[in-house]
Design a binder for these strands. Structure first.
Length: 593
DNA sequence: GTCCTCGGCAGTC
DNA sequence: ATCTGACTCATTCGG
DNA sequence: CCGAATGAGTCAGATGACTGCCGAGGAC
């Protein structure tokens, strides 16, 4: 190996990496706040990692055993982890749950219950076992997953178990993510972040960080030259930023393109002339789910190869209007695919083109990509290119926006005219604007707090993680649930609201409260909070508006608190069930246009 | 043995 | 999805 | 002219409703 790297060359044969060595790094990262120091620690770890172990280290850091787009999941969440801890440490399941509600981290719970200081398993061994767990399926698989992981628990030390259990939970919580890994790779070779853009570009178009890491490690930036956009291999999609007002939007973009924003499922379509492959926003393979779209791609794009960014939406066959998200999402399925395709046909609205007929378009400006996108499709009922306007006027954007809202759409996306397609990045090249961002344009709901849940991770320090919210049913003088709430408060406010709720603590659900879910701590209905939400949805879990046991209720989509507590309102002054239903009806009317 | 329900998980937004 | 909080980095302020 | 203060940007990790799949386990 010859290269100009400084300090990263293995000067001696590195030995196999033990899992306790890896978790020692994790513990250091855990204790480090500075991102620069975390990057340096990671760079050091990469230096000590043999090339053949790079895959394992990278995937484990990502909380996985395979690249993002591989359909390999652990199938071990919190409940099963609790069983693993009990089985692996000999503690009672009750005890495990009790400890978890206090410290909010199963890794830390297991650490408390283990004496052993250090295990003797290697990273390779742990990786192999975790892979086995992920691949286990069929009858008896749940018990087998648990016992495999419990076996590992018995063979590692205190510090190791802490991080071992966090891996399948997908909550390693080290304060590092993909961007930091990429900085660290660059830093390990160059002592600076200078190669980050090249590394990031490679990662974004092949979606496999382990491949990028190995190529880069072997040959530096030259090693990345062979990574190109390939039809069939998912590209990490570009994402948008938000602003508060239309004025801010125009200030940032000047003259820009404005497109409608659809409330469907993001879909990246690949066509190699024969095969159609589709990926979701997080690179799940959708290909088998939308046979109607696949057929349409073959027809409407015959003779071409391409990769496009799009939104898939179900629509009303009678009126042509797009259906709500809850309808579209029913098309995301493995079984009864064909029947559902007939019942709920999809439209695919293309809004960007990354590749066409052998040419990578991602580095061309928006306007040119759009030209290509408008030119290659045949007419058809499924694939269509999104409409757009070009303007630098706030008034024009507002008019366009109002029209889209009036027709039941989510809002608009504004795009910088000369911007390239920034795969894997969230940037101000694309700015989304939804109704709920503009305070006066969207309704808020006054909700009564009915109780709270203990938090996990960092929130456990606060003694609270989320609230149970209700509204008032005037007809029956009952409080019914409409949402949980986990965002909007500062840490200080979380603590304050918990203190208030503890004063009104109830040992069980108060008699005037009707709920099908139970918080960790009940509270007598006293405090009213103002909640902003994007929409009201039909709900199988919340009791607001439920007529009888098996009916659907109503709930809030994307709830967040604004302000703290409304001192001027009594619980009976909260929004009523009847008002919620009225709001839902008004919203449903718009969807029909 | 077969069918059905439900809890848990993983994914969409 | 939304949101907060910590840190980084570039720019401006003030002595 | 240089260090301190400020503010925008980046990143990570809390949390939401809802749907479908899968396996477990009860009913029959």
């Amino acid at each position: 190996m010859s290269s100009s790297a400084n300090g990263c060359e293995p000067t001696e044969q590195l030995s196999a990496l033990y899992f306790h060595q890896l978790t020692a790094y994790f513990a250091e990262l855990d204790a480090t706040r500075s991102r620069i120091q975390m990057m340096e620690l990671l760079a050091d770890l990469f230096t000590k990692t043999r090339p053949e172990e790079m895959d394992e280290v990278i995937y484990l850091l990502q909380g996985r055993v395979a690249p993002l787009y591989a359909p390999i999941e652990f199938g071990v969440g919190e409940q099963l982890t609790a069983e693993v801890v009990a089985e692996g440490t000999g503690a009672a399941l009750d005890d495990v749950h009790r400890r978890f509600s206090e410290i909010g981290d199963y890794g830390a719970v297991a650490e408390e219950l283990i004496e052993r200081e250090q295990g003797s398993v290697t990273v390779a061994h742990v990786f192999e076992r975790l892979t086995e767990i992920a691949l286990t399926e069929g009858e008896g698989s749940v018990a087998k997953k648990v016992s495999l992981l419990a076996d590992l628990v018995r063979n590692v030390g205190k510090q190791e178990v802490r991080y071992l259990l966090r891996i399948p939970l997908g909550r390693l919580r080290l304060g590092v993510g993909d961007p930091t890994f990429m900085d660290a790779l660059s830093f390990a070779r160059t002592g600076s972040k200078e190669h980050r853009p090249a590394i990031e570009r490679a990662y974004s178009i092949c979606s496999d960080l382990a491949t990028v890491a190995k190529d880069y490690w072997r040959a530096g930036i030259d090693g990345l030259q062979d990574i190109h956009i390939v039809v069939g291999t998912p590209v990490i999609p570009a994402a948008s930023e938000r602003v508060k007002t239309m004025e801010d939007l125009v200030l940032r973009l000047g003259r820009c393109a404005v497109e409608p924003k659809f409330d469907g499922i993001r879909c990246q379509v690949h066509f190699d002339g024969e095969n159609v492959t589709m990926y979701s926003r997080h690179l799940e393979n959708f290909s088998g789910m939308f046979p109607d779209v696949v057929a349409a791609v073959r027809e409407q794009a015959a003779g071409h190869t391409f990769i496009a960014d799009s939104e898939a939406l179900a629509y009303d066959v009678e009126t042509g209007a797009f259906l709500p998200f809850q309808m579209t999402t029913q098309r995301r399925r493995k079984h009864n695919v064909d029947e559902m395709a007939e019942k709920l046909p999809l439209r695919l609205v293309l809004f960007d083109l990354l590749y066409l007929d052998g040419v990578d378009l991602t580095r061309q400006p928006y306007t040119e990509r759009r030209e290509h996108m408008l030119g290659f499709l045949r007419e058809g009922s499924v694939l269509q290119v999104t409409e757009n306007i070009e303007t630098d006027s706030v008034a024009a954007i507002e008019a366009f926006f109002a029209d889209k809202i009036e027709h039941g759409l989510e809002g608009v996306m504004a795009k910088k005219l000369d911007s390239v397609y920034q795969a894997g990045r969230r940037s101000f090249d694309w700015i989304k604007m939804k109704r709920s961002y503009q305070g006066e344009l969207s309704d808020t709901v006054d909700c009564v707090v009915l109780g709270y849940w203990y938090g996990k991770g960092a929130r456990s320090q606060l003694g609270i993680g989320a609230l149970l919210l209700g509204v008032y049913d005037k007809d029956r003088d009952q409080f019914v649930t409409i949402s949980r709430l986990g965002t909007g408060y500062s840490e200080e406010e979380w603590v304050k609201i918990r203190e208030l709720l503890d004063k009104d603590r109830a040992e069980e659900a108060p008699s005037r409260v009707e709920a099908e879910i139970a918080p960790d701590v009940w509270s007598n209905p006293t405090h009213v909070v103002e909640i902003q939400a994007d929409e009201i949805t039909r709900s199988p879990t919340h009791t607001c508006g439920k007529q009888n046991g098996d009916d659907m209720g109503y709930a809030l989509r994307f709830p967040r608190v604004v302000g703290f507590v409304r001192e001027d309102r009594s619980p009976e002054d909260a929004t009523s069930v009847q008002e919620v239903i009225r709001l839902y009806t008004v919203q449903a009317e718009k969807g029909k246009k």
